[in-house]
Each structure stands twice: as C-alpha cells, then as structure tokens.
Design a protein around this nucleic acid. Structure first.
Lengths: 229, 229
DNA sequence: TAGATTGTTAATCGATTAACAATC
DNA sequence: TAGATTGTTAATCGATTAACAATC
C-alpha cells in the first residue's frame, strides 16, 4: 500500500480555509446542497480560480455546471485542519485577554476546546471563568497530563511568557498559541503560532501613512490631514 | 522638484518592521550605537540578506565592517510606519477583549493612542477603563470629530460589528482595526485591517495534524496520539 | 593590507492569475 | 446540443535566497 503523496497545502490556503468553512456552513444551514466557486469567490472577495485551486487540496470533486457538494466539502476541510475532533487546550493567564478567549464559544466550531485555565494570582483560583475553574500554576503538569491536553494558550504578560512556555514544554504540550509579544525560545518539534498584534498594527499604520501622503499630493494646500478635519 | 519615487514596501517587510524596531530599541537602550544585519538576523531567526533588503527600504546607509547607525535606523522605521506621531484611535466594545486592548500601554511605542472608548451597555458609561471614560454610542460622531480620531478599533461581538463599522465610516474614520470575526462591507478608500484569529488557529491546527500524522507513520503501533499518554 | 560587512543584481522559489480543455 | 463550470497546465507576479562586487 503506497503512502498518500501527502500533498503539501500552502500556508495562504490554510489561512483561507476557515473563511470558506464559515461560508459553506452558512450555506448548508440554509438548505443548500451544492456551491460553485464563483459564488464563494464573489461573497469573500476572492478570485474564482484561487478558490478552485484551494478547494482542490480537499480532494473533493465538483461537477461541472453544478458545483461542489456542500457536506463533503465541509467534512474535507475539517479533516484537513484536524477539526473533526476538538483538540484539548489549556490557557495560562486569566487577565482580560485570557478571559475574553475563554468566552469564545465559537472555538468549538473551529477545532478547539479549552478545558482548563491557570493563573499565578491566588485571587483567581477556584473561581470559575466561563464555566472553567482557574487552577494555580503548580497543578499545571498534573492537569495537562490528566486531561490529555495538547495545546497551550499563552495570555500572560510579555515578561512571564517564556517561563510559561517552558512549563508547557516540560508538561508535554505539543503546540503553543502565543499571544504575548515575545519570541519564545522552544526546543525543535514544538509547534508555535504567534499572534503578532504589532505586525498587524504596522500594516494598518503604513497604509494610513500612504493614504495621507497621497491625499497631500493631490491637494498640497489642504489642511494637514493629521490635524483638522 | 521631482516626486520621490514612493518605493513600494512589500507587505511581509512591513510586518517584520515592528520586530526590528523592538530589537533596535533594546540595543539602543543598552548603549549600543550601531548594529549589523547578521546580529539582527541571528537574534530574530531570519536570513541576514533578508534583513539587509528590509532595512534597505528605510534608505539608511550602513557602513561596511561597522553596521547601521541605531538612532537613524529607528527613526527611519518609525517614519516608514507613521509612528513618529501617535495616531489617535477610538475603541468600540468594552468587553474583555476591548478592556485588554485599552490596557496595552505598549501601543504608545507602536504609533497608537487610544483616546476614547464606547459601549452600548449603559452600565459601562462614565466608568473609567484604563484611564479612559467609556461613552455611550450616541456621542460617537461628536467625540470622533472633536478629538480628531482617525482609527476605529472594533471589539464588539460579530453581529454588532457591521453596524459599528458603518457608524465609524459615517463619522469620518479613515482606518478600521477589526477584531470581530466578520468580513466588513466598507466603501472604497476606507482602510481595514482584520485580526483573523481563526486563520491563525487553522495554521496551528494544521501543523498539529501533520505532526501527529507523521508520528503515526513513524510508529504505527504507538497508541493513538489523540488519546493516551 | 586583509577581511568583514554592506548593498545590489541574479537565481530560485512559491503563490496567484490566466488560459483553456474536459465534462456534465 | 449548448453552455456553464470544473480542473489542470502555463504564465505571471512577487518575495526570498544566493552570489558577489563595492567599501570601509
């Protein structure tokens, strides 16, 4: 039996898959049975060719003049992302950001189940947060093993993030979703996904400068855009 | 006088600039005067060539055998991103996520100054949140104009996001930083930066599946990685 | 001078887009 | 059949990486 060629899915495609999934589920919920790439493309502001190429990675066959079967497509995307079973995760740092993530019920539709929360602050301990008890840090390794947790979410301040990450690695966590603005030093083999707010802010800012500069060129006598209306 | 050729900075470069800035500021704070691309590259896990190409967009000249002058480089990156003056922003939706962002003091080093916060819930009104008063929505347009606000941050639930965005556009906001998991419909010319948590989660999940699949291939008799151990 | 480092040009790599044949 | 839509192959575009000359 030959191994499947493990066709490599490009990163940009992976990033688009959740958006497809959201749209496809919406269509399926409203009773539709098939969907065409042009419909998807139009709704999401993409090129139909790109959608077709992306959907090609699922291996689901579409019918010319009909489209793709919605249930198969949804299943295949979920399979590709490993979202058919929820991955068990824990969250460390029950500040505002952590609490906010604990409240995201939507995660359960996107493969993630946060089963435990931890915090350094004793005032948080025992208090349930969105239905989950907040544990002290010294229970970390035990609970991670007991509850079969594979993903760690870091929502502590920057200066505590590396120590938390080390703890996660020691406890056998396979992947870390890092919301702290630091580059974590991790042993090879540990998966890390950084949520870099500042990269995102940089893109916004830069487009804003470019925009303002352009306006100033259009009308050099206009009031400075950084000031008045 | 010829217009500057407005050399287009690639998006991936823009995304890396804040990380450079963070490192350069740290070096400058510890008294260093120059920095080499190899030092930057090693510290951030990048290729030196890439760093050199990125820094090329700043227009700052480095000296062979010496490196780049830190103060000039920092200024130039800030200029490129429009971070020499803080952009004035408002935030709508003072839930946990919104409160968390209001608490990010670091934003003031990354070009952003959140000067006002708004919420639909009357229980939030008047209450100061990280030093800012929370205003009711009906004051929105007035305060945006009064305080010369150009950026709107959307931290409301998905179903309220489009209405908030419409309000922002009507009030004359130029750019929207959207944390709600929806694609906003906006008139052309409005800058929008989506913070897509689910794209990020998809990347993490997919690497986790790939990882698990690989392990299973290595040792087909091992207990299923989603379960035991 | 010798050699490390810059900065530019060329090669490679990967993703998007275009073109078009296959097919229902 | 005619025509819309799939699915694949080729062309384009853009970013990264490699090579190397310039320079302090």
């Amino acid at each position: 039996m030959k191994n499947a060629p493990a066709r490599e899915v490009p990163q940009p495609t992976i990033r688009r898959l959740p958006t497809y999934l959201h749209y496809l589920r919406d269509r399926a919920a409203s009773g539709q049975a098939v969907v065409s790439t042009s419909a998807i493309a139009q709704h999401l502001g993409l090129e139909a060719t790109q959608v077709r190429k992306d959907l090609g990675y699922t291996g689901v066959a579409g019918k010319p003049r009909v489209g793709y079967p919605l249930p198969l497509l949804i299943d295949a995307i979920e399979a590709l992302l490993g979202w058919q079973r929820l991955s068990r995760a824990c969250l460390v740092g029950v500040g505002h950001l952590g609490t906010s993530l604990l409240g995201y019920e939507r995660f359960s539709h996107y493969g993630l189940h946060i089963v435990a929360a931890f915090d350094r602050d004793p005032r948080q301990h025992g208090r349930p947060c969105s239905g989950r008890t907040v544990w002290p840090m010294d229970r970390f390794a035990q609970i991670v093993r007991r509850d079969d947790i594979h993903i760690g979410i870091v929502t502590v301040p920057a200066d505590a993030a590396q120590a938390v990450a080390d703890l996660m690695v020691a406890a056998g966590i396979a992947a870390i979703w890092n919301f702290a603005p630091v580059t974590l030093r991790l042993p090879p083999g540990i998966i890390v996904q950084n949520e870099d707010l500042y990269a995102s802010l940089a893109l916004l800012s830069q487009r804003l400068v470019a925009h303002v500069t352009l306006q100033a060129q259009d009308d050099p006598h206009a009031p400075h855009p950084e000031r008045g209306r």
